[in-house]
């Protein structure tokens, strides 16, 4: 009961943090806060550490393959130097500044 309330308030705080970060234009900060919110839900609400250990294996596998999809899937777009119909060719990774 208490734990759930704690998670709930932390989520609301993080949400407020996201809004503040938006006003200051801190995009990376928003992403970091969103990841924290996801973690709170997974640990606090879905109780992954009380679940059978298989659940953790499955969750990690899903996360790993999600990473593969996002990284290998964006590899082409972020390294392409030709074949654009409009706009500037992009040749940098999202986390690098132009």
């Amino acid at each position: 009961m208490g734990r759930i309330f704690l998670c709930w308030s932390m989520l609301l705080l993080l949400l407020a943090g996201e809004i503040v970060a938006t006003q200051s234009g801190l995009d990376r900060m928003i992403c970091a806060l969103a990841v924290l919110m996801v973690l709170i839900i997974v640990i606090g609400f879905m109780k992954i550490f009380q679940a059978p250990s298989l659940a953790i294996i499955f969750a990690v596998a899903g996360l790993f393959w999600l990473g593969v999809l996002l990284m290998l899937g964006s590899l082409d777009s972020f390294t392409r130097t030709s074949f654009f119909t409009s706009g500037l060719p992009v040749s940098h990774w999202p986390w690098q500044s132009v």
Partner: peptide
């Protein structure tokens, strides 16, 4: 198909 050479090599 026109993917980047870098991606193609990988």
């Amino acid at each position: 198909a026109g993917t980047s050479l870098y991606a193609a090599i990988v």
